[in-house]
């Protein structure tokens, strides 16, 4: 599969350094991406962040057969979709609050902590921001739990966690922080949790 050649993500992120944001579950391919990919971004000011994306987007609308579709699903979650030749090329999936998950509830203060503890990642001549390693693992863990029964490809998140917790100290630190941010689950989710925890136990050899 070939990377999309439509957007240069460097154009966007080199101008977003002043925003308080973090790209979660960042792909190793970044700044490359495939057609139809999405970028999950937590940001402090979702409107200001969107304005910057659209400002840069104007350049692409002017030159190419590009359309930008914006859906403000609610006050805390926006989609900004770049469409080329009527096909979704890239989605900026923006949040200024933790998304709600069905299978696991997280404490709301995790969102602020993720932004506070974000780390800089050097690109060519600018920085992007990503969550600290521990918080990145929490988000991937939640994502895996949310989708593992429907999307087999989400195993990649678990693999990421395993790769990053080979050191027992790191593993313990991650588990402590994870449990610190988990809220008791609702009745609806109860039946699924024992299965999940069994799987996790096995994987982590706990």
């Amino acid at each position: 599969m070939q990377y999309s050649q439509n957007l240069k993500l460097n154009d966007f992120f080199s101008k977003l350094e002043k925003e308080n944001y973090t790209i979660v579950k960042l792909s190793d391919n970044f700044p490359n991406y495939f057609n139809g990919d999405d970028l999950d971004i937590f940001c402090e000011n979702i409107d200001s962040f969107s304005q910057k994306i659209l400002t840069i987007g104007n350049k692409y609308i002017k030159k190419n057969n590009c359309e930008v579709r914006i859906r403000q699903k609610n006050d805390t979650h926006y989609h900004i979709d770049f469409i080329f030749d009527k096909k979704l090329d890239l989605r900026f999936d923006l949040y200024n609050k933790l998304p709600s998950y069905k299978n696991l509830k997280l404490k709301n203060n995790l969102f602020g902590t993720i932004l506070k503890n974000k780390t800089k990642k050097q690109q060519d001549n600018y920085f992007i921001y990503v969550p600290s390693s521990n918080e990145e693992m929490i988000l991937r863990y939640v994502e895996f739990l949310e989708w593992f029964d429907k999307r087999p490809d989400k195993i990649k998140h678990l693999n990421f966690i395993l790769d990053n917790t080979s050191n027992p100290i790191t593993k313990e630190k991650f588990l402590i922080e994870l449990h610190n941010y988990i809220k008791p689950s609702s009745k609806k989710t109860e039946p699924i949790l024992p299965i999940i925890f069994q799987k996790i136990k096995k994987i982590f050899k706990l």
């Binding site: 409107d47 659209l54 987007g57 609308i61 002017k62 930008v68 579709r69 914006i70 403000q72």
Partner: peptide
């Protein structure tokens, strides 16, 4: 009317839109 775009106060509120040529 929209939290992202500068729009005059008398425009009707909107949350779904596209920008295109």
């Amino acid at each position: 009317p929209n939290s992202i775009l500068p729009t005059p106060h008398h425009t009707r509120p909107f949350k779904n839109f596209s920008i295109k040529k």
